[in-house]
Design a protein around this nucleic acid. Structure first.
Length: 505
RNA sequence: GGUCCCUUCGUCUAUCGGUUAGGACGUCUGGUUUUCAUCCAGGAAAGAGGAGUUCGACUCUCCUAGGGACUACCA
């Protein structure tokens, strides 16, 4: 059996969006599952839409996500099938264009964009195909001399010549047999003289063949042109070596209609890109999963389950586990709406699995920016107390700020509910008690304070809620005694005193 | 408009002719907790509609409806 070789072949027209990431991921999982190679090829045959920085962005995205490129752009060793940028393969394509032309399977067309536009206006549903090409300006309708003369002076394109009335069958791993009649396919442009470059269709087939791609795994948006690609393999004489196709279901917008696209940017309320992207022309910034605080493992895990499932009830998967379980026949056929809430849940789970030390390292910079310096091991202890209530590193500040800052305001609602006339007196008594405690560990303070409450027949809620309000400033946070053991005796007492002085009944 | 693809809880999905149609996210209720959150337990929630095949259909076939993709000298 042929070695498994798959490719991800983006066009560098901007950042990679999340649907593209999933396509790349499935390619990667499939390749690794079968001991094959994952190639990255850049399809930059549209010079007009090229965006600088896009290629580097794509490479960096994969690096962040843990999708390793074995060959091509972004690989450690590019590999022997290069170059891997289509713009650098001009001479290669030219040869096959000539081959098709010589065999009469393609022809030269001189119709200008304006000509075509006029035709489209004139004839409803105009299509450049067997039924219309005789009315157009091409090597089928012009004399050989005319063609030769025009070729020297006018821009032209090469179009595939499609015969009518043949059923073309695409065997798709996910969808089974898809049959389409050649009559409905138009004579697609294969090559343009203006930039000496092929269009996607030709370049893609030539490269996949030359690079010995075994499986083409791509988005469903390519399904309609798959028959054309099959035809092209036949025309080029490579039918018996044609790769297998798998057309993936699309990632859809959460709100009902349409596929997720680059243009959605931040309009949907969540990132559609793996990494933050700054548009080089407009300087617009689109948010990325990395910058939004996602763990790459969570993004990968979440994305993998959008359109594929293992057939078991397992939901948490490391990359290795995904590779192990992945199979194209468990990819679903229908599009998946992107559920951002579930993405958050995945991140929550990954954050819980992360060690306090690692989280402290990720959080410490944010503290520095706020002018707070703290010992990393102490920070790790604090994070250990609050991490289960967070989903993102960025949630940490909200949960820990009171460890670093004395409360300036006291939550109004709580004041009304928990700070009664007798509270200051109660808190003063508590201060005296606190001052006498020598072992200020969580367990020790808990034992002593609870014993005192019982002894004096105080109301547990009345004491503890006021105590929390004094120290934290709000009715939130972890176990009270854990908090004060970290703050220490002095700081705790200072805060209670301040609360007594500040809060007016 | 044409061609192609798709259709199970709000969402992601399991089911490969016989199930009380299962799980997860979200949601609701209760419990734990001195607070908030977490966590735990429980609940509500689905086979688009119609024909057919079959002893039996969510599962197979057809029609209808709905959704989606494509329809460029873009990928």
């Amino acid at each position: 059996m042929k070695k498994v070789r798959v490719r991800f072949a983006p066009s560098p027209t901007g950042p990679l969006h999340i649907g593209g990431v999933r396509t790349a991921l499935y390619n990667y999982l499939f390749a690794k599952k079968h001991g094959g190679d994952m190639l990255l090829r850049i399809e930059d045959t549209d010079s007009a839409r090229f965006v600088s920085g896009a290629e580097a962005y794509i490479v960096e995205s994969f690096k962040w996500l843990g999708i390793k490129i074995d060959e091509g752009i972004g690989a450690n060793n590019e590999g022997e099938f290069g170059p891997y940028r289509q713009s650098e393969r001009k001479t290669i394509y030219k040869k096959y264009v000539e081959q098709l032309l010589d065999a009469g399977l393609a022809y030269i067309a001189f119709d200008t964009p304006a000509d075509l536009e006029a035709k489209r206006n004139e004839i409803a549903n105009f299509q450049y195909d067997a039924s219309t090409r005789s009315q157009m300006k091409n090597s089928l309708t012009l004399s050989a001399e005319e063609v030769l003369q025009k070729k020297g002076t006018e821009p032209y394109v090469v179009r595939i010549k499609i015969e009518t009335g043949n059923d073309i069958v695409v065997n798709d791993i996910i969808r089974g047999e898809v049959k389409i009649n050649s009559s409905v396919i138009d004579d697609k442009v294969l090559w343009k003289s203006s930039d000496q470059l092929p269009t996607y269709h030709l370049a893609n087939i030539v490269d996949d063949h030359l690079m010995e791609i075994s499986h083409v795994i791509r988005g469903e948006e390519w399904l309609p042109s798959a028959p054309l690609h099959v035809l092209l393999y036949q025309y080029l004489g490579w039918a018996d070596q044609m790769p297998k196709f798998a057309h993936l279901p699309l990632l859809l917008k959460p709100e009902g209609n349409g596929k997720l696209s680059k243009r959605d940017g931040d309009k949907l309320g969540f990132p559609v890109f793996p990494l933050e992207w700054k548009d080089p022309k407009t300087a617009d910034i689109s948010s990325g999963y990395r910058e939004s605080g996602y763990f790459p493992e969570a993004v990968v895990n979440f994305l993998a389950l959008l359109g594929w499932n293992p057939g078991t009830e397992q939901e948490m998967f490391s990359m290795d586990e995904l590779i192990n379980s992945f199979s194209l026949d468990r990819v679903s056929k229908s599009g998946a709406k992107f559920d951002y809430e579930k993405g958050k849940w995945f991140n929550h789970n990954y954050l819980q699995k992360e060690s306090n030390e690692v989280l402290a390292n990720l959080f410490v910079d944010e503290l520095k920016e706020k002018g707070i310096s703290i010992d990393l091991s102490k920070l790790a202890t604090i994070i250990g107390l609050v991490k289960e209530r967070t989903s993102f590193i960025s949630d940490l500040w909200e949960q820990t700020s009171f460890f670093f800052q004395v409360p300036n305001v006291y939550d109004e609602k709580t004041v009304r509910k928990r700070w009664k006339e007798e509270t200051p007196g109660l808190m003063n008594e508590l201060i005296i008690l606190l001052e006498g405690i020598e072992d200020f560990s969580s367990q020790s303070t808990e034992d002593i304070i609870k014993a005192w409450i019982t002894d004096k027949e105080h109301n547990m809620g009345a004491v503890m809620n006021a105590f929390r309000l004094s120290v934290v400033g709000a009715p939130k946070g972890p176990h009270m005694f854990d908090i004060i053991s970290i703050l220490g005796k002095e700081e705790t007492i200072t805060r209670v005193k301040k609360a007594i002085d500040t809060i007016k009944v």
